[in-house]
Simulated scan of single mutants.
Amino acid sequence: MTRITDTRDGPAEGARPGALPVAGLLLAAGGGRRLGGRPKALLGHLGRPLVEFAAGVLRDGGCVPRYVVLGARAADVRNRAELPGCVLVDNPGWADGMGSSLRAGLAALAATDAPAVLVTLVDQPRVGAAAVARLLAAHRAGAGLAAAAYGGERGHPVLFAREHWEGVALSAVGDRGARAYLRAHAGAVALVECGDVAAPDDVDTPEDLRLLD
């Protein structure tokens, strides 16, 4: 059973009266198979668990509310990471791949009135608040589907207006996440160049740990 814990205290931080800000969804459930079974959420970055940095990127970029999907060693993440203002969602099917975490996050967000969601990954420490802010600006300008681009190549974060959530969830299988949905709707996706403020490098292998700190 999916477990959801709301760590928010009072009104959503950053919310404006009458406004419907974009929700942030951080996928942080991976077990780090190629890292020898070290969950990515608990990797050290700037002296704290990496999941804290990634959640802070959503906060500083302007996302409200912020949901974090946990999986591998979820209890340890809850105990070690400080995630104020976040709603924590446990995904018991995390081992099935990123798609299951995306579905779990979207299902939890369905109870909110968020008009759109921005999805980011815990293992991309070079993606910061500036990239998030650019995608939110694209949504305010009318984009219902948007993705950060690096040298013209689509990457993360990605943004989906609410009317796309059902289709994204249906297509999210295995480790593909939203890839199939974005490919099928490529003509409608606004590519937002972020290569000057971010980089899409993933922390997947021991060699990639150099990206941290």
Rank of each mutant, 00 (worst) to 15 (best):
P21S: 10
G151L: 05
E193C: 02
L211E: 01
P200M: 06
G144M: 00
V22N: 00
L88G: 05
A146E: 02
Y150L: 06
R59G: 12
I4S: 09
V127F: 06
R126D: 13
V173E: 10
G155K: 08
L42T: 11
L42S: 10
G99F: 08
P115K: 01
P11W: 04
A133G: 13
G187T: 10
T112F: 00
S101M: 08
V22W: 00
R3P: 00
D113E: 12
L26E: 12
A110Y: 00
A114S: 13
R179D: 14
P17A: 10
G99C: 08
A95R: 15
R59L: 14
L212T: 09
V189G: 06
L109Q: 03
L27H: 09
R126T: 13
A107C: 01
A198E: 05
G128L: 07
L35P: 04
V119R: 01
R66M: 13
T120L: 14
V158G: 03
A28M: 11
G30K: 05
G61C: 11
G31T: 06
R183N: 09
P11V: 05
A147H: 01
L25W: 07
A199R: 13
V132G: 04
D123S: 15
G97I: 04
M98F: 14
L145F: 05
F53H: 15
V168K: 03
H139F: 02
G56L: 09
V68L: 11
G24E: 10
I4Y: 02
L212N: 07
P157M: 12
E82D: 14
G10L: 14
G177C: 04
N91T: 00
